[in-house]
Amino acid sequence: MYKRKRKARMALAVLIVLIILYLLQRLFVPKYVDGIVEGAFVAEYYREANKDFDVLFVGDCEVYENFSPVALWNEYGIHSYIRGSAEQYIWQSYYLLEDALRYHKPKVVVFNIQSLQFDKSQSEAYNRMSIEGMRWSMSKVRDIFASMTEEEHFIEYVFPLLRYHSRWNDLSMDDLRYMFSTKPVTFNGYYMRVDALPAKDVPKGKPMADYSFGDNAWKYLEKMRVLCEENGIELITIKAPSLYPYWYEEWDEQAADYAKEHDLMYINFLKIQDQTGIDYDTDTYDAGLHMNLSGAKKLSHYLGRILRAEGVPDRRGDPELDALWAKETKRYNREIKAQKIRYGIE
């Protein structure tokens, strides 16, 4: 009897400690609702009521800031989503795609090949932003092991409190407010900016000793291609029209050769400025690195036509999707209005 009582109170104590740990973890993890919001993107995907997307974009900032799914829907009726995060490495894009396939099979996957330049993760911060938002699955586990830098530990992904414990010094009211739920910051993965900063004096790339992409990067591109092939998905590779980081001609040749070899579509938006109508004076908000809303609309308009030509259906008329996109468009327009006021744009 005494033993049972002892065990029960011990179990209760452990339970209380676990609850406290859970609450602390919720409190300490960054919320990414203001300032640096890129860490919130990946998790937002799971909130989508209808994940039956026909087009899935995967990649880094060159997709989540350069293409607008809302514009694609409103103009072409394309049901799409962007699974991207800041400096998302190719293996992270691969595992996010693998993870997305647990929920749906898109007809087309659009992958931005900018990340081929990295053969291993460069920064723990970017790893965190891409991985933490993923739901637990073997894809996430493999993603962690593929991404971890030397200073990182797997257990710190399992228990983020171990990583973020030192935030006790930086906690704000937002950490309390968004402890259990955060506000959405993207529009189907698209991160909107309406302001403009013309691209001037963009630095040329410095000559490199070796322009070859690394083995690891190639390995994951190949894995992505095979995964798409096995699932009957068309893989379209693109290079978004960002002027910086510099995209070398030697890199472009390798990407183009790979696409040719495997019969993939490859679009280098840097070379078709006249067709897309991108104006680097008005269509970028940070001097050529990323597109603003105007640039994203132009790129979506151009790519949407291609996607439609590749057989992506126009799903307007589906009551469920119409309702969802109407709601999203309303929020999208509200954000445009709010940002215009914020940046003093007429």
Binding site: V17, I20, L21, R163, H165, S166, W168
Partner: peptide
Amino acid sequence: SGLFLIVLIFGAYGIGY
């Protein structure tokens, strides 16, 4: 448990330390 939580939160360990 209090001591455990103190070590967990205020310990100088992990990335950044």
